[in-house]
Design a protein around this nucleic acid. Structure first.
Lengths: 150, 150
DNA sequence: GTTATCACTTGCTTTTTGCAAGTATATTTT
DNA sequence: AAAATATACTTGCAAAAAGCAAGTGATAAC
């Protein structure tokens, strides 16, 4: 899948970033990949923020178009696909990290996340190489209770 | 103007960031303030990305609610207001900087911007203190030609 | 006092998002 | 082998948000 060159005509770096990954759902998908090591459609769907399935599909397509992620058949379960960060995607880690550092100063944080923030200050390189190796930095949070049925 | 605590119930740092400033127009307003030193409503409106006036109004209100910017009457022209970054807003500079650095690796950049990227590597602290001092890092680009009338 | 500037607001159209249900293909179960 | 299940979507419709043009109110300039 190729990317449309009509997009990105501004020469502004922020505009380019915003067009490429700067919307709520793209950023949350990147978080899922980098922090939680998620790589499957249903894993992204299961996030607490409750992305709609059609929106997830369009966002993944867009990220693939932009060369941020790749999509491959899972060799061990051929009805599944595995999404991975490209080098261009991995290079977004500093953006995600700086968002986390900022939020860490302005919201209340649980101990697990505080520990990750501490690690970020002491071992940023290690965090970056974990992201590059698709190694989760945090266990994914338990899904929030859904509406009861029955 | 106060901020609604019902928002931000997730304990995820990325979700907090995304809810606070993570949409196209908020990020572009922050760019206008940090890179170009813009501080007035009509300056934000004049950006090349062509934000709609009602959308700009809601974004500025939101950023004010979240404590990212403040709004004050301009003492020298009492029909105008001046928006400024709060400390919380200034602390977002690393996020903007990392977006610029990333984009700088994946798009073609004109010499003025390339120079800023170079400076960012050599003198990050200086850049941060310019942002804190509301000193523009780049001259604002000329407005793109609008539709002719007449 | 008439006109212009500045920062919006209002009303309406178009686009995007959200939601529920359905489809296609691969795998597991019976 | 047939039926049920898993996985990754697509489709159709309603609701929300964004975009557009025009209007308002409070200063300020002429």
């Amino acid at each position: 899948m190729k990317h449309d060159p009509k997009k990105h005509q501004s020469d502004c770096m922020i505009a380019y970033g915003v067009d490429t990954f700067g919307d709520r759902w793209s950023l949350l998908v990147l978080r899922d990949m980098m922090l939680y090591g998620k790589c499957r459609y249903n894993e992204f769907l299961a996030s607490n923020e409750q992305i709609a399935t059609n929106v997830l599909a369009t966002r993944l397509k867009h990220l693939e178009c932009e060369g941020i992620v790749t999509k491959e058949r899972d060799p061990e379960n051929r009805r599944s696909y595995v999404y991975s960060l490209t080098e261009k995607g991995v290079q977004l880690a500093p953006v995600i990290i700086e968002i986390m550092r900022w939020s860490g100063n302005y919201m209340t944080i649980n101990p697990r996340r505080r520990k990750l923030l501490d690690r970020l200050e002491k071992d940023r390189e290690g965090v970056l190489s974990d992201i590059r190796a698709s190694k989760p930095l945090l266990a994914p949070p338990p899904p929030r209770p859904r509406a009861a049925n029955g």
